[in-house]
Design a protein around this nucleic acid. Structure first.
Lengths: 156, 156
DNA sequence: CTCAGTGCAAAGGATTTGCATGCCG
DNA sequence: CGGCATGCAAATCCTTTGCACTGAG
């Protein structure tokens, strides 16, 4: 694997490799990697940060809202995209961690914007160990953890 | 301050003291601590874990949904209750951290249930330091952080 | 009397779904 | 051809809001 994850998956994997990975994942679940789905991935990859549905449709106005939601849902189920519920009006979507690297979020409670941040790997390790101990103890099967900082962004 | 927070605020503060604290907070913002609001707090305190609106109204069927939402909103604004958007159909509500103590969540992606967990204080300290460094660097003003473990609970 | 709080009913709005059509394999 | 994928429109359903009424001070 490569080292420190960077904002925007485009820098880590060429788009071609990215699409190829995703195509395989979809195929495993009997889904096609159609033009609309490819387009969703490219928009999110280009943005390099979580986007709302209006953001996404704004980036490609000829994309139908229902198709966007439907395809995002499929991509989420296939582990390609992650959905973040910030509590604002819209959910946010970003490329999943296997593609984007493990990271966390700054969530602005005023404007609802979300930005990616990265923690020191030592701390990540400690947190991970701590959480898996708790999971063991309670019979919980972990998938992922989220660590978000809520507050006011520099502009608000 | 008292030591390690316990599940269920009833164990830490007698209900009377709890109500008194909350009453003051509400008064500061020119709100009354009415019967309905008191009832909300008692239901959440008794549960000792995050509840959805149906849970809450189920615990007191004569409570009107709209009043419940309205009062929860006011209590959230006054820092008495915290709202958690897990991504399921309903939001969850629990007593805020000043009353319940700092803690985190196990979120079941199957059944949507949320359970409180507590982390080792050393780790909390490291995470807190790390996050405030990031906040400083980016001009972000932190209010709180959330650290949730997503996965499947023992029953699912 | 005043005005916040309450409950009912209705509206709002993000997200989902039904259905006819289009398109890739 | 067969069946998934798409887009439009309509439905869903959690949550908020309008409005008349009640009750505490």
């Amino acid at each position: 694997m490569t080292g420190q994850p960077l904002p925007g998956a485009i820098d880590r994997n060429s788009l071609i490799e990215l699409h190829s990975q995703i195509s395989n994942r979809l195929a495993q679940q009997d889904h096609r990697y159609t033009k609309g789905r490819k387009q969703l991935v490219e928009i999110l990859a280009r943005a390099g940060q979580p986007m709302t549905l209006p953001d996404i449709v704004g980036a490609d106005p000829k994309m139908a809202r229902s198709s966007a939601y439907r395809n995002l849902d499929i991509l989420v189920r296939c582990g390609v995209i992650r959905r973040i519920n910030s509590g604002g009006d819209y959910s946010h979507f970003e490329l999943a961690e296997p593609l984007l690297g493990h990271h966390h979020h700054l969530i602005c409670v005023s404007c609802g914007n979300i930005e990616d941040i990265h923690l020191d790997s030592d701390i990540e390790h400690l947190v991970g160990k701590s959480l898996s101990e708790i999971a063991d103890r309670t019979g919980f099967t972990p998938i992922q953890h989220s660590l978000d900082l809520h507050g006011h962004c520099a502009r608000c």
